[in-house]
Each structure stands twice: as structure tokens, then as C-alpha cells.
Design a binder for these strands. Structure first.
Lengths: 226, 226
DNA sequence: CATTTTCTGTGACAATCATCACAAACTTTT
DNA sequence: AAAAGTTTGTGATGATTGTCACAGAAAATG
């Protein structure tokens, strides 16, 4: 697939004409990272905009003692790196490839040019940031007000929405992330995730099938926990 | 002060020429709310953009059982309401005036027109949203990884940065919010806030002076807790 | 396919913190 | 200036959940 075709799938570029898309596509450079590689380091100067062509990355923050929070897991057609480009501050999060990943990159100046030249991109980007902000707010709420069972359930809902496939009310999350990662998103411990998922199984709400997790009745599940 | 003069202080409008500023100013309508009034209700359709002329508001989310999280406290020249305008979703947070407040409002269509007409506003707004997203990320990190003492300290730092006045390294937060509000921001209980502030006083890091709180050495304090 | 490494399950225990319950110190109202 | 209403301080208690410890399962590696 050509670069331009990839861009077509990215919400913020989807409004553009083919000719404009091609112009941008030419400025982009492709890069690959193998699983577990650090793509961006916290505190380093942010100078690049990234779009994920294939694979997945996790956005994390780390405390001094090495514990990490996962802020988000991003997949195909998602983008990152825009924050420091916009506000000029250094990176505030680490980005690590969660599987082998291919990305498209755009330099700072090309990115900013884009925004100036195509106001539609700026507006689409605003929309995307608004959505992210909303998700962050929900995340903050759940960390503040919910117990670990709820937080874990909400994390599973997040996964279902991003990675899940629905089949008459039943959602299957293929390749559920490790318990440690779930814990780092839900703000709890790995052991608690283990115990809680078992509990949810006993309540007949979910079922584990090897590396997959099935949520029997997604609507009901969402009602119960959010 | 005229409406245009107020706008001048708002970061996202500050790049504009006077003539353009006046055009926008004419479209804005002023409204007043007394302390404790609900300005925006969660779940209601979002149709207006707000700028705070005077006073302060708190941005909250509430759980079914009535407990609330405070996502932010906004003051003069801050704005809100942009999120639903941008992504078309309904309101996700409540806005309550924390003191008597005067606001300027702009209708949905005028706001969106603004963005189309003045790309600079869109870019400035992107910058602002990036900053907010960054703060949210920090908030999420602290809720996930820190104990209550740290979370409360970080909340005090947030207040110091927004409402504080510095005087040779010493920051005074005038009119510290109620313990209950601090607790709702820090994701802890009111009682824990009371005990923790006492603890910080015993450690000679802060001092309470009636309704004010003094942080003796702000840089040191920040280093200790973030 | 044997070995090493990574991931998961589960018990025991301890620490943190929320909750309840008042009293004391304040504001605000009348 | 008394009364009513808020906000704060503090002890006692228990629940939730993190931590440690290790065994078993699964995956990756040679």
C-alpha cells in the first residue's frame, strides 16, 4: 500500500483531496521498530510527528522507581508525537513499540506547515485531541472513584473498543495484553488483575480462551461498570 | 473593561489584530452566575463556548452515588465548553461556579466560524489542548503511582501554579480551596487531606495562615513530590 | 524437545486509607 | 450575640488491595 493510501485511513487526513494527500505523503519517511524498542524517550526534545502504519505502541509514563503507567495503547492509523510539536514542551511520555511496528514520520516544520496550509487538518486534529481529552477525563474519574474491580473492567472495555471484534453482542478481544500491562493501565497490581478476571469469569461475565478474552454481553458489561 | 480587552488576555485570541478581535467580541454575550450555580450539566447537549471574565469555576465529573472528581479549577481568562463543540459529543463534565462568576459566551456556529476564518485561533487552541492533555497525563500518572501524601502535594502544586503568588521562593496560595475539594482532585478522602496537610506542616514544608497556605520553598517542594 | 525465560495463579500478611463518629473551630444568618 | 450551618481535626476500626513468595503454565530459544 502506498503512503498516500495509508494516510487516507487516518482520520485527520481523510478530508483531503488526493493531490494534497500526495504532497504530504512525499514528505513522510517510513521507519521500522522491532518489538520492545523505545521510539520516543521521555524528556527528549520532540521534533517529529508519527503515524502508525502497522503494529502497535504503548504510551507510558514512568516514575523514578521504575513503575510505569500506560496512558494508551495505539494501533494502526493512530498517531502520536503531536503534543510537543504543538506546545513546544519536551516529551512528556515514552513511546515503546508493543509489537514490531512500522511508522511514517513527518518533521516538525512539515507538520506545522500542514496545519497552516490545510486548516481542515487543524480542525480535524482539534477534534481528535478533544476525544483524547475526554478519554483522559474518564480515566481520571475511574482512577479517583472506582475500586479495582471497576477500574479493571473499564480497562477491558477500553481494549474491547479499540481491539475488539463484535459478534451479536459478544465482544472478543484477540490477544489480550499481559496482566502487567492491564494493571499499569488500571492503576493496580498484576496480582489483582489476575484475581479480578477470575472473579469476572465466576460471575459469568467474561471468558478466557487462550490469549483471547470474550465479553459475553458487551452492553450489559458496560452498564455494569461505567 | 470592554469585551475585546478581555479577549486580549485569552491566549487563544492574543495573536489577533484589533479589528478581528472586535468582530468576535461583538458576537459574544455576557452572562453571570452566582456561586454554586451549575453552568453546564453533564449529558446536556454542548452548544456554547465560554470564556471566564471574572470568578472561577470547577470542572467535575460525578458518579452515580454522588461522589465527584474535580478535573480542574478554572479562573479568569480560562475557557471551557470547546470539547463538545469540537467532537460533537455531549457534555462529559459538569461546570459549577466556584465563586460568583461572569462569563462571555459564543455560539457553536460562531465558534466554528472563528476556527475556519482564523487558522491562528485553531492552532492556538491546539496548543492549549495539548497543554491540557499533558496535565491530564500527569494527573493520571499521579493517581496511578503515588500514595495519598504525594497526590495531595501534587494537587497543592497545581493550585500554587494557578492561583499562587511567589515571593522569593515562597509561594502563597490565597484562599486555599476546601479540604473536600482538594480531596476530590487528589482522589482521596477529606480526612486524609486534613491529616496530610498537618503532616506537611510538621515537616516544615508548608504553613497554614488562616485561609491561606504558604509553601516555604516551592522548588524544593516540587522536587520532593513530582 | 529440553531449557530458559516470561507470564499467570494463589495463599498469607501487612499497610494504607476510607469510613464512621464526634468535637472543636469557623462562618453566616437572624 | 445567639443560633444554625459549614468546615476542620482526630481517634478507632476494618476493608481493600499491594507486596512477597513460590508453583505451575505457556512461550521463546537454542
Amino acid at each position: 500500500m502506498s503512503t498516500a493510501q495509508h494516510l487516507r485511513n487516518v482520520p485527520i487526513f481523510s478530508d483531503l483531496k488526493d493531490t494534497d494527500l500526495n504532497i504530504i505523503a512525499e514528505k513522510m519517511v517510513s521507519r521500522s521498530y522491532e518489538k520492545g524498542k523505545m521510539i520516543l524517550l521521555e524528556e527528549s526534545q520532540g521534533e517529529t510527528f508519527f503515524i502508525i502504519k502497522s503494529g502497535a505502541v504503548k504510551v507510558t509514563r514512568q516514575s523514578d522507581d521504575g513503575r510505569e503507567v500506560i496512558l494508551a495503547i495505539l494501533g494502526e492509523s493512530d498517531f502520536f508525537g503531536e503534543m510537543s510539536l504543538l506546545d513546544g514542551e519536551g516529551r512528556s511520555a515514552n513511546i515503546v513499540s508493543n509489537e514490531d511496528a512500522e511508522v511514517l514520520t513527518l518533521s516538525r516544520s512539515d507538520f506545522l506547515d500542514c496545519l497552516e496550509t490545510y486548516p481542515k487538518i487543524a480542525i480535524a486534529l482539534l477534534e481528535e485531541l478533544a476525544i483524547r481529552l475526554r478519554k483522559s477525563d474518564q480515566h481520571i474519574e475511574s482512577l479517583s472513584l472506582s475500586d479495582s474491580e471497576h477500574r479493571i473492567a473499564i480497562t477491558l472495555i477500553r481494549f474491547a473498543q479499540e481491539l475488539g471484534t463484535i459478534k451479536k453482542g459478544e465482544v472478543t478481544i484477540r490477544n489480550l495484553p499481559f496482566q502487567q500491562d492491564i494493571a499499569n493501565m488500571a492503576g493496580t497490581s498484576r496480582e489483582t488483575v489476575s484475581r479480578t478476571i477470575k472473579l469476572l469469569e465466576e460471575k459469568n461475565l467474561v471468558k478466557k480462551d487462550k490469549k483471547d478474552l470474550i465479553i459475553y454481553n458487551f452492553d450489559e458489561f458496560r452498564q455494569l461498570f461505567s
